[in-house]
Amino acid sequence: MSLQVHVFFLLCVALATVAQSLTGFAFGLILLGLVATLQVLPLTEVAVVISILTLGNALGTLGGPKPQLDRAVLMPVLISSLLGVSLGIWGLGALEGGQIVWLRLLLGGLIVVASLMLVVQSKPQAQLSGQPSFWLAGGLCGLLNGMFSSGGPPIVYHLYRQPLGYEVIRNTLITVFAANAAARLGLVMAQGQLTLSTLWLSAEALPLVLLLSWLVRRYPPKLSLRTVRWLVFVLMALAGVSLIWDSLPGVLAARAV
């Protein structure tokens, strides 16, 4: 790769890291989106790099003093999301190509609607939702991660509607996505798909991820929860539109048959 490609890649990593450190999600969404737009690297390779760097972001953001977490919220989401990843991988193999395309289109539409509801309802709920809702949101998160690597919206939408502190929400999301990334990375390693070039890319970007994550944790920008919710809305909307856009060619081809 040329020096210019390396610089572009690191700039994409920097933007994704800052967004993830502020909101708790969107690292993969931003990095994959930018790399796909700039066409600087193979997306299959970047997808594995994202899993490694997500773990680095979690270490940089949650390392040091004990992070603020609510175990009653974290544990059901964490356990159900890991179970959902396995189910999602199985479901991806069980569904036919045409069914997957329509499912992606539906998912994209639901994510856009959910993002709009998040900003329309400008204030969090008065009371914390019941435990079953956290199990359901976590399970959907893992299921969509296993099928489409787009599991953020269900759990992001659910948590940002709860009467929880901003740091608790962000730290919960980062922990869950790091665990999901570790599960995906273990699967890649078991299948022998971890290449030397992937490791080099990860090693190149990891110091930047750790540094920026630490800086955001050490010198957090003074953002109100309302501002963060608007940032989450933009990222969720981008995720939904991206899924719709990617699925449209397949849907149009299916209708033409």
Rank of each mutant, 00 (worst) to 15 (best):
L210C: 10
G139I: 13
G63P: 06
V216E: 01
A14T: 12
R161K: 08
I111H: 01
G56R: 08
S242A: 14
V232I: 03
S247T: 13
S133C: 13
A137V: 09
A256P: 01
A203P: 05
R218V: 14
V73R: 06
G165W: 06
V7Y: 00
L128R: 01
I111N: 02
N171M: 00
C141I: 08
L69N: 02
V113M: 12
R170I: 12
L143W: 05
A16K: 05
S213R: 00
Q99D: 09
A19S: 10
A239P: 00
F8E: 12
V73M: 06
L235I: 14
R255E: 12
M1A: 13
G138Q: 04
G186D: 04
V168H: 06
A178I: 01
L62W: 03
A254D: 12
A14Y: 09
T23V: 06
L59P: 02
N57Q: 11
W200V: 14
I79L: 11
G88K: 02
Q131E: 12
W245I: 06
V168Q: 05
P153T: 13
S51L: 12
A16P: 08
G108E: 08
M147K: 09
V232M: 00
S122F: 00
G33E: 10
L118E: 00
S51C: 15
G240E: 01
L199I: 13
K123N: 04
L59G: 14
L107S: 07
Q39T: 15
I174M: 04
G33C: 07
V7Q: 10
A14G: 15
T227L: 03
P154R: 12
Q162S: 00
P76G: 11
W102S: 06
G138E: 07
M1R: 06
R161N: 04
G151Q: 10
V77I: 02
L87I: 15
P221H: 02
L128P: 00
V241E: 01
G165C: 08
T17C: 04
S150L: 12
L238K: 01
M75S: 05
F177C: 06
F134N: 03
K222Q: 15
V13S: 08
V216P: 07
V35T: 11
E204A: 14
K66Q: 10
S51A: 15
G192L: 12
C141Y: 03
E45H: 08
R226D: 02
